[in-house]
Design a protein around this nucleic acid. Structure first.
Lengths: 342, 342
DNA sequence: CCACACACCGTAAACGTTTACAGTGACTTT
DNA sequence: AAAGTCACTGTAAACGTTTACGGTGTGTGG
C-alpha cells in the first residue's frame, strides 16, 4: 500500500548516507558496523531494490526480448523453451513479442529497441525486407537473427540448414523406393518457404528424379491449409507415393486427408514433416520429421546474444545448426494398420 | 554506436528547453512553431523515448509478468497464447518467467515484484504454500492467480472447474458402458492433482460406481511418467476398460502403452485426457479430452489484471471457467483399427 | 498609458539509484 | 608532536524523463 522503502528511507533509519547504503547493498568495502546497521534497517523495512532506477543509472535492464513470428507455432515454442533457461541462468529476464508474421510489427520491435527497455533482441523474422536490413544496421542494441539473412549483414545469425534437411528426407524416401515424391510447401515469399522449395528441387535432382510442377502444392504453414493443399494434390496425382511437407502442421493435415481417402501411411503414401515438433511424436502413425534443430537454434541464439552483451564488439558470427532426420512410423513403420502387434 | 539522442539533444538543436520538447512529444498544448521545430529536430536525430527514464518518473513500466510453472506444458502455452495479444492490445509488454514448478522460484518472482520492473503479475502456481499466501498479501503490485487459492485470499483469481470436468468425463465413460474406470493422476500435493483425484472419487459415486484403490495410479504430469503409471496399472488390473488421465501428456503415454499391449482404443480401453491441448487433436486415435479452458483462463486473467491496473482497488474477483468435454476417437471413435474406412 | 489576462515558455525539482570526489578521523612514521 | 597514510563516509552530480511554478511578452480593457 504505502510507498515502498528506498535507500533514502534506509539511510535515515540506519543513520548513514545513501551512498553508504548503496555501497553495502552492492557489497563494496564498508565497515562492519555500518554493514550491520544498514542490513538491519533494510530487513526491517523489507527493502527491495528498484530495478528501474538502477537501470536508468547503469544503462542496463537485464532484459532481453524474443520476437517470434507466430506464438502458435510449436517450432518457435521449442526455441523459447531453450532460450528462457539460458537467459534466466545469466540473470536476464525475457520479454516476449509475437509479431503474428506481420512485417510492420517486426519493424516496430526493432524500432522500440531505441526505447532501451531491453539490452538485446533475438528475432526470427519470416520475411526479411529492405527495411529490416536498414533497421538492423542502425539498431541501438545487439540483435541476433534466427533465420537466414543476406551475407554481410552485420548481425549475429543462427541458421538452420533446410537444404540439407530436405535432402536427408528425399534421400530417405528415395531409398525406400518412392519415386513420386510430392511437396506441400508454405508461401514462397517467406524465408523458410523459399528455402525449402528450392531444396526440394535440388534434392530431387541429386537422386536423379525429375522435378514436376504437378507434384508441388503451395498452401500455408497451418494444419487446415495443409489439408486443403493435400486434397488438391491428391486429386491431381492420385498415385503419389510420398509427401514432403514443409512443416509438421502441414504433415498432420496430410495424415488427416490420407486417412480420409483410405490411403495407408506409409504403405501407400509415406509422409515426412519438418521441424520435429512435439506433435510429430504425438501423432499416429508417428511422424517422420526433419529436425531443423529449433531447440539448438534457440539455445545458440541466446548464447550468441549473451556473449555479445558481455564482450561487446567482435565480428558478427554465424552459427549453422545441422539438420537431423528423425525416422518414425509415417515412412518406415508398420503403418496405420499394424499398431496392435509387437 | 554513439549515444542516442535525448530530449536535451533535441532541445539544443531546436533551440528550446527540454520542457518544451517534452510537452511537444506528449502532445500538450504548444505553439505551432515550436511543435514544428521540435518535431523536425526529433526526426532528424532519430529520437526514441527512453522507456526506463520514463518509467522511473511515471512509476509505470507498461510491463506485465506471466509466471508459468512449466514452459514445456502445452496447457500453459495455451494460456500464454491468449494472454500475449490481450496485453499487447492494451500496450503492455509481457515478461515471461518459467518457475519449473519450483516453489522457491515462484516466491522469487513474487518477491521481485518489489523491484517494480512490472506493473502486475499473472501467476499459475502448482502448489500454494503458506509463504505464497503471505507474499500475496503484501505484494507490491497487483497479482492474478490462475488456479485455486483459499477463499478470502485478497487476489483476483481465475479457476478451472476440474470437479465438473472430471464429472463430465466419467459420466461420458459410464454412459458408454464402462465400469472399470481407472485414474492416472499426477502428484497429490499439487493443486490440480489433489482436485482431480477428489473429483474422480466423487464422480464415480455420482454414477454409482465404487471407488477402488487398485484402479488409481499416481505418476507425474509427463508422458513418460504416464507410460510408467499405466504399465503398472495395466499389470494390476488387466481388464480395465477406461482410463481417466489427469492431463493430455499422461493420456498420450497411456495410448503408447495400450498400443504396445495390443489393446484397442477405444474398443478395449477408452481413454480420456485433460486440458484439451493441441496434442489431443494431433494424436491418433485422436484424444477425447476435458477442456478446462486454458485459453479462456489465460484471457480472463489478462483482462482481470488490466482492469485492476486501470481501476485500482475494488473487491478481488473470482472468475470460474466452465469445463467442456471434447469427444474424439479415443472414447467414441472407430478406434485404432478402423481409420481407413469412411 | 497602465493594469490585467493570457498563452507560451524556461528553470528546477523530482523519480531512486550509482559513483566520483572530497572530507573526516585514527593510526603510523619520523 | 607533526606529517603522512589509510579506511571509511558523506555530498553532490548524473542517468533521461515529467511537471509544478514562475517569468516573459503580447494583446485587451479601462
Amino acid at each position: 500500500m504505502a510507498d515502498g522503502p528506498t535507500i533514502t528511507t534506509i539511510a535515515e533509519r540506519a543513520g548513514v548516507s545513501i551512498a553508504s547504503v548503496s555501497r553495502v547493498l552492492n557489497g563494496l568495502p564498508t565497515r562492519q558496523e555500518t554493514v550491520r546497521k544498514v542490513m538491519a534497517a533494510a530487513d526491517e523495512l523489507g527493502y527491495v531494490r528498484n530495478a528501474v532506477a538502477r537501470s536508468l543509472k547503469s544503462r542496463r535492464t537485464h532484459q532481453v526480448a524474443f520476437a517470434m513470428a507466430d506464438i502458435g507455432n510449436p517450432a518457435y515454442l521449442a526455441m523459447l523453451r531453450e532460450i528462457q533457461p539460458v537467459l534466466k541462468a545469466a540473470g536476464y529476464r525475457l520479454v516476449l513479442h509475437s509479431t503474428d508474421a506481420v512485417a510492420a510489427d517486426e519493424i516496430d520491435v526493432l524500432h522500440s529497441l531505441g526505447e532501451r527497455y531491453v539490452d538485446g533482441l533475438i528475432m526470427s523474422p519470416l520475411r526479411v525486407t529492405e527495411t529490416h536490413l536498414r533497421m538492423l544496421a542502425t539498431a541501438r542494441a545487439p540483435v541476433v537473427i534466427i533465420g537466414s539473412v543476406p551475407d554481410g549483414t552485420p548481425v549475429d545469425n543462427v541458421r538452420a540448414d533446410s537444404r540439407t534437411g530436405v535432402r536427408l528426407a528425399i534421400d530417405h524416401l528415395h531409398m525406400l523406393g518412392r519415386r513420386r515424391i510430392g511437396m506441400v510447401n508454405g508461401p514462397l515469399d517467406t524465408v523458410p518457404g523459399a528455402a525449402r522449395g528450392a531444396a526440394y528441387r535440388e534434392a530431387l535432382a541429386a537422386v536423379g528424379l525429375p522435378y514436376e510442377e504437378k507434384l508441388v502444392e503451395i498452401g500455408d504453414f497451418y494444419r487446415a491449409e495443409g489439408r486443403r493443399a493435400v486434397e488438391t494434390l491428391l486429386r491431381r496425382v492420385p498415385d503419389i507415393d510420398a509427401l514432403m511437407c514443409a512443416n509438421d502442421l502441414i504433415a498432420l493435415g496430410a495424415l488427416d486427408v490420407l486417412r480420409a481417402a483410405g490411403k495407408r501411411v506409409p504403405q501407400d503414401v509415406a509422409v515426412v514433416g519438418m521441424d520435429d515438433t512435439d506433435l510429430a511424436a504425438a501423432s499416429w502413425p508417428s511422424l517422420t520429421s526433419v529436425s531443423l534443430g529449433s531447440a539448438e537454434r534457440g539455445k545458440a541464439a541466446a548464447e550468441l546474444l549473451l556473449d555479445r552483451l558481455q564482450h561487446g564488439d567482435r565480428e558478427p558470427r554465424l552459427v549453422t545448426v545441422l539438420p537431423r532426420l528423425v525416422v518414425r512410423a509415417s515412412t518406415a513403420g508398420e503403418g496405420s494398420e499394424g499398431g496392435r502387434s509387437s
